[in-house]
């Protein structure tokens, strides 16, 4: 391996410091003994203990997970269906308009999405709570799922579906037995994307949540307005940990899939 030039070492260092210093500080201070965030008073894990006893945070975390799970699941089903119709439906009236409109929410300012949903829920007389957040998150993350899935469907060989029909499948069976298993990786990434978007969302959730249900981002945001506490640092550290583990698992499985694909290719060549 070639050695990095001094210039490259400097740029690399600067870049990573810029990216990770804030998070590093947050992680370090979550182990601070002191009540004050900015004064170091020795190592301690007591804030993690405090956190575990903080009902409000735990409730909010549970709400967030449930919202993320349900909204991403519904969004995946709806988004995949929309993608399928837009890519495979052939030319029907208004197709261009529909496919343009499905991308619009991606660029719509969140405040506007949130506000319009709020107005809708009020108009329908719905009490704001978990259900309204789930509906709101489904609305915006569905577009992301549909973008991810349709980009996979565009490169999907249509003759595979025709072969399934030819061999006796109804269109629904062809989708279930052939299309879905093949596009599954894209559907799963769509689901993961929708899940993270939902975990992450503050703006839309603040419009659509009610006193009965608060998500973790809202809880953290309102707590921070009263001052940052080491408890919040601890919570954030846990979240960073979860994300890191997720990313590591994803990259290991990608690497494994690649190694397997290479082995298969060698196998195919040997049998020529």
């Amino acid at each position: 391996m070639s050695k990095l030039s001094p210039f490259n070492v400097v740029s690399l260092t600067l870049g990573f410091v810029f990216l990770y210093l804030p998070m590093l500080i947050l992680v370090v201070y979550s182990f601070n003994e002191s009540q004050l965030v900015t004064v170091w008073a020795g190592f301690s894990t007591k804030w993690y203990g405090e956190l575990a006893r903080n009902e409000a945070f735990l409730d909010a975390a549970w709400v967030t997970l449930r919202v993320a799970f349900f909204s991403s699941t519904i969004a995946t089903v709806l988004g995949t269906m929309a993608a399928y119709v837009l890519v495979r439906g052939g030319r029907f009236f208004g197709r261009t308009l529909f496919s343009g409109m499905i991308y619009a929410p991606l660029v719509m300012p969140e405040v506007i999405t949130g506000l319009s949903l709020l107005l809708l829920f009020i108009g329908l007389g719905m009490d704001r709570g978990i259900l309204t957040i789930v509906l709101a998150h489904t609305t915006f993350s569905m577009c992301y799922v549909s973008v991810v899935v349709s980009s996979r469907l565009v490169s999907f060989d249509k003759s595979l579906e025709e072969a399934a029909l030819d061999l006796g499948c109804s269109p629904a069976e062809a989708f279930r037995l052939v299309t879905l298993p093949i596009i599954a990786p894209a559907v799963i990434s769509g689901w993961l994307l929708a899940f993270t978007l939902s975990l992450d969302d503050l703006v839309i959730a603040s419009f659509t949540s009610g006193p009965a249900a608060t998500t973790l981002p809202i809880k953290i945001f309102s707590a921070v307005r009263l001052g940052v506490t080491p408890e919040i640092n601890a919570l954030s550290t846990i979240m960073i940990g979860i994300v890191t583990v997720g990313v590591i698992i994803a990259s290991i499985s990608t690497k494994r899939a690649k190694v397997k694909a290479e082995a298969d290719e060698r196998l195919a060549q040997r049998t020529e």
Partner: peptide, 30 residues
């Protein structure tokens, strides 16, 4: 008569083998 109800089978120019199934399951599919 829709394609799935015809006593006709087609071998596609691109073969159109199902990539997620083994050779045996491809043949058994129909």
């Amino acid at each position: 008569v829709p394609p799935n109800k015809r006593a006709v089978n087609m071998m596609f120019q691109s073969y159109a083998l199902f990539p997620h199934l083994t050779v045996r399951d491809n043949i058994a599919f129909g």
